[in-house]
């Protein structure tokens, strides 16, 4: 079993501190939801964990299976098992999804050790069938001209193929209509299992109707102010973020 431990983490963008001492542990097999209003530091947390160069970690630690990842390059962290489903994934013109995922998997092989192409495609098509993705999809260039829903499905497909130990999902529900939300959620639910830990970042409770979390955390002003089970999300939905502001922020 793997663990992702975030301890007393402080993150700044430039001079401004955004995450102010956040602690959270996710174990394999668990789905954690991190909720909170905009601007509270949720996305900053996910980008700092994967090593985005614009985010400076000024204190605390992030450990994957007991080993700090903070000195690792972003690609080393990825190969060690951390995956971020981006809120706004980049376009890569001219590179097909199939070739991109293949390059990502190839990067996990030793130099000179070629990925078996036919086995790769077989597995890719299995995952696509599982996620109900059309075969033509992977011959399109990564995210180029994609709708919001297509971008998110592309992220989920990559996650399915790469099989990370931990997936950070940044506002996976944003920009999706209800049908797209259902499809993406089904995909995530298919991938849930003992080998995967998920930290799902969301502004809205509605995503949690489709992906039911084991744990829910409420974030406010750079810290987790309350943790609980899925009922916390329902409570939050009923009382709104003003409740967080009034009651939890000063707790």
């Amino acid at each position: 079993m793997s663990s992702l431990e975030i301890t007393n983490l402080h993150v700044s963008i430039g001079e401004k501190e955004i995450v102010k001492g956040l602690s959270l542990t996710v174990n394999s097999g668990e789905v954690h939801a991190l909720m909170g209003p905009n601007g509270t530091g949720k996305s900053t947390l996910s980008k700092a964990i994967i090593g985005h160069p614009d985010y400076t970690i000024t204190g605390g630690d992030v450990r994957l299976d007991g080993k700090s990842v903070l000195q690792m390059e972003p690609d080393e962290r990825a190969r060690a098992g951390l995956f971020l489903a981006f809120q706004y994934p980049s376009e890569i013109p001219g590179v097909t999804i199939a070739n991109f995922i293949r390059a990502a998997l190839q990067a996990r092989h030793a130099e000179g050790e070629e990925l078996d192409a036919s086995a790769y495609y077989k597995r890719l098509y299995q995952k696509m069938d599982m996620l109900k993705i059309d075969r033509k999809f992977t011959s399109r260039a990564v995210n180029a001209g994609f709708s919001g829903g297509e971008k998110k499905r592309c992220e989920i497909l990559q996650m399915a193929m790469i099989e990370p130990k931990f997936a950070l999902m940044d506002e996976t529900d944003s920009g999706l209509d209800i049908d797209a939300l259902k499809i993406v959620s089904e995909g995530v639910n298919q991938l849930r299992g003992p080998g995967l830990g998920v930290l799902m970042i969301t502004h809205y409770q509605r995503l949690l109707n489709y992906i039911v979390p084991d744990h829910v955390h409420v974030m406010w002003d750079g810290r987790i102010v309350r943790s609980g089970d899925k009922s916390l999300a329902v409570e939050l939905e009923a009382k709104g973020y003003t409740w967080v502001k009034k009651e939890l922020a000063h707790a």
């Binding site: 994967i50 985005h52 160069p53 390059e73 972003p74 690609d75 990825a78 190969r79 995956f83 971020l84 981006f86 994934p89 980049s90 376009e91 890569i92 013109p93 001219g94 590179v95 070739n99 991109f100 995922i101 390059a103 990502a104 998997l105 990067a107 996990r108 260039a141 990559q158 790469i162």
Partner: peptide, 22 residues
């Protein structure tokens, strides 16, 4: 774009190379 590719495990060189090939 480079960070996105590195997050999928490609080294910086591999990421640039893939962009150029694309």
């Amino acid at each position: 774009q480079i960070l996105y590719m590195r997050q999928r495990g490609l080294t910086e060189g591999q990421a640039m190379s893939l962009s150029v090939n694309g």
